[in-house]
Nucleic acid binder design. Structure first.
Length: 577
RNA sequence: GGCCCUGUGGCCUAAUGGAUAAGGCGUUGGUUUUCGGAACCAAAGAUUGCAGGUUCGAGUCCUGCCAGGGUCACCA
């Protein structure tokens, strides 16, 4: 419908330009739903864009356009010139009549669009190293990535959700050492570090304490989960693992168990991945060597002080970076470049990386490096998100990774539930700081809790159907739902809101901005809850059968949109609360 | 110090370059005390951090400054 209007406008503008002897292309004008409802259902800015080319005042051009547009084949009921030269277009009533029926008929697919049909997108998110439980920061990323994937899916894209499993490097080695230390400590074969050593006030650690060696590495992982794994190992294996390698058995054991826990956590949030891309496969398949020699061919690699460097300054960046350490081990950056190149080779039209603010510095290096390898850098997009703070009782909860006093996703989901957790995590745009207010999330005053406010709006639409049943009446046929009977201002408001949904989805998907959807749902619920609340003003189930059918139609349409919207957010749409 | 992100009513925030900057929380004043179990209406509250610039038009884009956060590893 919007497309039709757009086409008609383009034709009218083209005709106008031709008349004026201007053969150039029609400029890209906007056709949008104005904030102010007095400005019609759509507003177009074309006239103002043409002032220079036509040398006429914008309002005159607008008037000429209106003349040529007419009623756009019955689509429009009113057109007018407004403000500095906007074209305000009002849709004919038949459109509103059709809307309710269309929503009900489309059902689960209402709101979808075809922007990405035939194209493939890769969304990489979480990608946490299995060194410990997922924290709240990972949680934000998990929900962001998942909802972005859902939005792109609703826009016709073929989506691959990917988790980059990065199990090489020093961190994992330290993890193995930490686990082995806990194991030995429990057997009385090693001494645990003192609290002073752990909190960083002792720089040089002693090799022994009370005659026992200190096995725990400086900077090791202090979380309780390692004690638990170690205890389990002692229970099942006794002391037979003493000779096992920290970087072998213990590292793999820790990695395996922790990753299992991570997947459990993700599962509890209803997040599944299509692909766990293993860093080590880049080594096994020679992708690193290949990338290195290709970069070398471009003179982007040099040796210095025993290490191999990427000449990033040649790409306009402010410093060069080591890609292979003096030890022969690659840094994080190197496989990451090869990895992104592989994403291109795997045939994705669009590559989306969801990353935390701490990772941001990495991105320009990867992007410019793969660009040198023949990949179109425009096709990689970064969704960067700031961190999450948690507030309880009006005070910020202190978090420290080093001391392992962080709050995990499991903690939080256990407290507020997956639905509230998900909704809260996409309430703000990604680049902004997010404060997770536990008092609000667990509040018994549910009206203040936006997740439940929206869910409740959905439950209420279902309540009407139950009520209908109680009264022993049957659901009216779709054809009886005559939206012409919906004439109250609040009903028109609702119809317009429902009409907006597909555009909200399209915009959120294109801009990789899930928060548009949560805002929209909050607004729709904000219209619907008061409407249904005040039964005296506009009863839905009344003696007037025609009106009843029309309002049931409205309720069903609202239900469809709330349900679809919540589904995009991965939040359940309960029929009863 | 370099680079990145963010500055919007008292608080939290929204706004594909569009018209009178939109919600929620809180505050104040009414209405309602009942349902289809989470009430409604109204009011107050803003120089969109500051100063320039770009143009028909800037919260949005550009430059400089100020403030907060992040990051500047042969960590990941």
């Amino acid at each position: 419908m919007k497309e039709q209007l757009h086409t008609q406008l383009t034709e009218a503008i083209g005709a106008l330009l031709k008349e004026a002897g201007d053969a150039a292309e029609v400029p890209a004008f906007t056709l949008e739903v104005p904030r102010n409802t007095d400005h019609g259902d759509f507003a177009c800015n074309a006239a103002m864009l043409l002032t220079k080319r036509l040398g006429k005042p914008p309002r005159d051009i607008a008037a000429a356009l209106i003349e040529r547009l007419g009623d756009a084949d019955g689509l429009l009921e009113g057109t007018e010139v407004a403000g500095p030269g906007f074209l305000n277009l009002r849709l004919s009533t038949s459109h509103w009549r059709d809307l309710v029926l269309r929503i009900i008929q489309d059902g689960a697919i209402y709101g979808n669009n075809s922007a990405g049909v035939g194209k493939r997108v890769n969304v990489e998110f979480v990608s946490a190293n299995p060194t410990g439980p997922l924290t709240v920061g990972h949680g934000r990323q998990a929900i962001l990535g998942d909802v972005i994937a859902r939005l792109l899916g609703a826009s016709g894209w073929e989506v691959t959700r990917e988790y980059y499993f990065n199990n090489g490097g020093r961190q994992m080695r330290v993890l193995g050492q930490s686990l082995k230390a806990r194991y030995l400590e429990g057997l009385g074969k090693a001494a645990p570090p003192t609290p002073e050593m752990l909190d960083g006030s002792v720089e040089e650690w002693p090799e022994t304490l009370d005659g026992l060696p200190v096995a725990f590495p400086n900077g090791g992982y202090q979380g309780n989960y390692l004690f638990e794994i170690a205890a389990e190992l002692r229970e099942t294996r006794g002391d037979e693992l003493i000779e096992e390698d920290a970087d072998g058995f213990f590292r793999l054991e820790a990695q395996g168990r922790i990753f299992t826990e991570i997947r459990k956590t993700l599962d509890s949030l209803d997040i599944q991945f299509d692909e766990y891309y293993n860093e080590s496969s880049l080594y096994d398949e020679g992708k690193l060597d290949e990338t290195l020699s290709d970069l070398r061919e471009k003179s982007l690699v040099f040796e210095q002080e025993g290490a191999t460097w990427l000449r990033a300054t040649a790409l306009g960046l402010d410093r060069d970076r080591v890609i292979i350490k003096g030890t022969g081990e690659p840094t994080y950056l190197f496989p990451d470049i090869a990895y992104h190149r592989e994403k291109f080779r795997r045939g994705f039209d669009r590559i989306v990386d969801v990353q935390g603010a701490d990772h941001i510095e990495q991105f320009p290096f990867v992007r410019l490096a793969v660009a040198q390898l023949g990949c179109d850098p425009e096709r990689i997009e970064l969704v960067m998100h700031q961190f999450v703070t948690i507030t309880r009782g009006g005070e910020q909860v202190k978090q420290s990774t080093r001391r392992a006093t962080y709050i995990t996703i499991d903690d939080l989901v256990g407290e507020v539930g997956a639905d509230v957790f998900r909704f809260f995590m996409i309430q703000r745009k990604a680049e902004g700081h997010l404060d997770f207010d536990l008092d609000l999330a667990t509040s018994s005053d549910w009206k203040k809790n936006p997740a439940m406010y929206v869910q409740y709006a959905h439950a209420r639409t279902c309540g009407i159907e139950r009520k209908l049943e109680e009264q022993g009446k049957s659901m009216p046929e779709a054809t009886e739902m005559d939206a012409d009977r919906l004439v109250l201002p609040e009903e028109i408001e609702l119809l317009k809101k429902l009409n907006e949904f597909p555009e909200v989805v399209a915009r959120a998907a294109e801009g990789l901005s899930p928060h548009h959807v949560s805002y929209y749902l909050r607004e729709l619920a904000g219209l619907w809850n008061p409407y249904i609340q005040d039964g005296s003003k506009h009863r839905i189930l009344s003696d007037d059968e025609g009106l009843t059918a029309a309002r049931i139609g409205l309720a069903l349409a609202v239900r469809v949109v709330l349900c679809n919207g919540l589904k995009l957010l991965g939040v359940s749409a309960p029929e009863k609360m």
